[in-house]
Amino acid sequence: MEKLFQKISFSSATLVLILLLGIFTTLFISAKPAIAEFGLEFITDKRWNQEVSLPQTKTPAQVATPAQNLEDDDAIADEDDMILDEDDEDDSMTKTVFGGLVPIVGTLLSTLIALVFAMPIAMGIAVFLAEIASKNISKYVGIAIELLAAIPSIIFGMWGLYYFAPIISDTFGGYQVSLLTAGLVLGVMILPFMAAVTRDSMNTTPDVLKESAYALGATKFEVVKDVIFPFSKVGIIGSIILALGRALGETMAVAFLIGAVYSLPETITDPTISIPVAMAVNFGEASGLGESSLFYLGLILFILSFAVISFAKFYFLKRTKV
């Protein structure tokens, strides 16, 4: 019985490893046709689902020779395929091109806006909870902030689209669905998470340190700036990066607000698209190369958020528990 229980518990723990490897492999296999077709140029290509006649597809490919040299066999095989295609069917000399630049840029920019918006407020809230408020107030405000984190993301989307976005677009001009509104609502979403983790890091500062600073006549601001911040700096940076990792993969709130159009935003108030939204919106009707390209985007997102989160975990949050 003891042995059996030990085996079961070991296998359940290993399930996590299997799941992660499984996600990675499955995404890779499903993305393979797109990876073989577009290679790494996928990342810098801003065309999505565009019919192009074949000679045109070759011109940009030839311009980008340095990049292509890196891709060696695949790229050469591709060109062979293209030439063959051309020989085979003279009438339909078009092919559909998928590139991931727009969603990738949209993801990064909306996350950046969210971060810029949420960071100062989250820091303020964390200081309020950890240092300023009395125990009771801190507890209730803390619960309220955590409730904000518990609200499902689709609710943020509904609220953002019908109540928040009109105000933003009246203030800053531009469209109601745009990079800016999506980024700001994303900021509201990561705000409580960032504040909670930052507060926890700040709370690790030993009371003795704070008290000796107060005893020397330091103000609250000086204690936070010169004692708490230096002490918990590492944890705070970690929590910011962790929040960034979460923001990258957020789907539903952004789906309502970013506009879901495949075009690079010229200004901050233009609509565009992000990787999770591209997957949410286009997965249903996609097939073949389109579906595979969406998996390619998913793979990029997964690697990106995995890298960001583990970076935060291993370099900054080694000691604290989240």
Binding site: V16, T26, T251, L294, G298, F302, S305
Partner: peptide, 20 residues
């Protein structure tokens, strides 16, 4: 550590994984 990372993994990617 891996399960810590999994907590923050993009949920849409998990959807795509299960889909396949």
């Amino acid at each position: 550590d891996l399960s810590d990372i999994m907590v923050s993994a993009p949920s849409i990617v998990i959807g795509a994984f299960v889909y396949s």
